[in-house]
Amino acid sequence: MSWAVYLVPLWILLVGVYGVATTRDLVHAIVCVSVAQSSTYVLLLLVGYRKGGTAPVFSDIAPGSRPVTDPVVQAMALTDIVVGATITAMLLALAVQVAKRRGTLDPGELRSLESAATDGHR
């Protein structure tokens, strides 16, 4: 049963994608993308955990005195978070432009690119 914890990131991923698939609002969709992406943080940290381990920072513990969690996956999680934040900013900027051009944030009302172009030239 030691693999049961890996169900958590699986669940977070599917919940996030469910939100993207059923959303009625682009800002909500962007939040859902962030939720889905956060499953990768959880997965990375779960993979890197060691029983009884502490943070891999040796400013106040002697090297080798305690098990530490895997620093490589933690560095990847850091990268992941930074990239996730910037992607969120980009998507929100796109949502701002959609709201301006089309006057709606409901993806169900954004029918085709064609009408978007005519809208923009109005």
């Binding site: 914890v5 779960l46 993979v47 490589v72």
Partner: peptide
């Protein structure tokens, strides 16, 4: 969970 080997780490 918590028991795997971490050669890179």
């Amino acid at each position: 969970f918590g028991l795997g080997a971490h050669p890179y780490g």
